[in-house]
Amino acid sequence: MPTKKPLIAIVDDDQSMREATRGLMRSLGFDAEAFSSAGDFLKFPDLRRTDCLVTDIHMPGMSGIDLHRRLVALGESIPTVLITAYPNGDARAHGLGSDVVGYLEKPFSEQDLLNCVRSALARGSDGKG
């Protein structure tokens, strides 16, 4: 029986960033789904199967930080990588709890993102199963 591929969800209102990140994750052998808003991700039928969330902090409507808080409030513990092009005021993101496994400033390297995703998957496998 084949093992299921980890599911990486990408939430970013920047279409080119979203598509590039999804393409990278798929090229590395992960399942990847991309969403243009936090609200779209919250409606995702496979939300509970998500192994890692990569989300932009600054988005119209619900921010990445608000999305993380909403997931915690819903009892969903999804290892999360926060990304931002505006790092100045985001020190508060570091205090969000153990589910936040990475914080990357755009532009970041593919390797940095991969390191964060691997850390998220390692953490998720410790707590699940």
Rank of each mutant, 00 (worst) to 15 (best):
P107C: 12
P107D: 13
R123Q: 13
A38V: 03
N115E: 15
V72K: 05
L82S: 02
G29Y: 08
D13S: 11
R92Q: 14
G75Q: 02
T21K: 13
L7A: 03
R26T: 08
H58E: 07
S36E: 11
S36Q: 08
G75Y: 03
N88V: 07
G89T: 06
S16W: 13
V54A: 12
V81R: 02
I10A: 14
S125C: 03
A32Y: 08
V72L: 11
S109I: 11
I8Q: 07
G95P: 05
L7C: 02
V72E: 09
R26F: 05
S27N: 09
L82F: 15
A122G: 05
R49L: 14
A34V: 04
P60E: 15
A34C: 10
D40Q: 10
H68M: 07
R48G: 10
Y103W: 15
P45L: 11
H58F: 04
G29W: 07
S119Q: 11
G102M: 09
V54E: 07
T84Q: 08
L114M: 14
T84P: 07
T55K: 04
K4T: 12
G23L: 14
D13T: 04
M25W: 10
R26P: 00
R48F: 03
D14R: 06
L82V: 04
F30K: 09
M25P: 00
L82N: 00
A120C: 10
P107N: 11
K5L: 15
L71M: 10
E33R: 12
D126G: 01
G23Q: 08
N88R: 08
V81M: 09
E33G: 01
K5W: 05
R48E: 12
D90W: 04
S125G: 08
I8W: 04
K4I: 10
L42T: 00
L53H: 01
V101P: 06
V11Q: 02
E33P: 00
D66G: 10
F35V: 01
R22I: 13
I78C: 06
